[in-house]
Design a protein around this nucleic acid. Sequence first.
DNA 1: GTCTATATAAAGATAGAC
DNA 2: GTCTATCTTTATATAGAC
Lengths: 208, 208
Amino acid sequence: MVIFTNMLVESPGIPSQRERILDAAERLFMERGFAAVTLRDIGTELDTTHAALYYHFPGGKEALFAEVAERNVRRHGEGLAAAIEAAGIGLRARLRGAAAWLVSQPPMDLIRMTQSDFPSLPDADAGRIMSLIYELILLRLQAVFETARASGEIADCDPGLVAGGLVGMVESLHSIPVFARRRSLDEMACELLDIVLRGLGYREGGTA
Amino acid sequence: MVIFTNMLVESPGIPSQRERILDAAERLFMERGFAAVTLRDIGTELDTTHAALYYHFPGGKEALFAEVAERNVRRHGEGLAAAIEAAGIGLRARLRGAAAWLVSQPPMDLIRMTQSDFPSLPDADAGRIMSLIYELILLRLQAVFETARASGEIADCDPGLVAGGLVGMVESLHSIPVFARRRSLDEMACELLDIVLRGLGYREGGTA
DNA sequence: GTCTATATAAAGATAGAC
DNA sequence: GTCTATCTTTATATAGAC
């Protein structure tokens, strides 16, 4: 029986250097965007040099960003699905779970991504990541509204539009400077959610 | 009677080169953010060289961005005030006017500004512009909700939170790629607005 | 795998001609 | 006022030692 070294370093709790790079890069890139982060910033974060990054990511900054952005979208999607799942049934519970997840994560600035980051990437990368955003996040939330509509919990509406508007509204809470936050992002998201729910004619349990 | 040259070049319809630079810079900076735009980009846009920009803006990129960002916020604030004013009375009309104005402008990405652009500026500039955003945009919209609350058009709510959430929701429509827009941003904003209005217990005319 | 050193390119900024 | 040319800094990227 042969034990591979890379199986050991990938064991839980001992993240590989590659993972550590991805973590730091993801945080920096998602906070500031592609253009505003240098490879030296990422190296400094890990107490190493930017040259070391090229061993793990031969494709350089673009490849690193593309991988990091895709990873971020997938993580957002998984967390969203898990939060919705864990919330059980009922539109209000599901949306609160989804919103709590979104504000617990670094901001996902879709305006910056579409207007600034993606145009800097090869079309193939940009297109793939944009499709993932649509598929893993927007469609996932849209399905929640469709389910609620089908069971009579809410009135008729454009579920895709409402899902998108909700993400934008909740994510925008991240733009409140930390010193100006008199309540937690979670509480504020809940209050906004309740307004939207009422606007959709929400009644618990639906027509049943 | 002396006629100053710079009075002539500032006459309507004949924008000075300084104005043309501000216009181009504003569009580019507000679309892509501080880090993603080079002075050469701006020069190219005006069929000139980046060196020429230093004659009009000796402070370089930072000073140009600071002036452009402040100008953009003031323009947003003025347009917002004018749109609300022109809409007459009634919360729905006012919010529709405000939303129509917001989607008619290049996106104002508050997440990117606070997380990425402002940290690149001197604290004084960043603080001043952030205060203007608060004062000219958020407080202006907040006042609309407070007025509506006072006249009984809507139920009690946190007007600052609702104003902020609304801006975030409406602005996020800008992240929909152009090819994927099946309706105009204006129509989508109206539909979202109506949901929020209903959620606030809106009734036309208020208690009167 | 990571480092130092270096090559190359891009971007901010200035000088001086016109 | 604008241009060309140049300088300086910064950033991406590579080479080769360890």
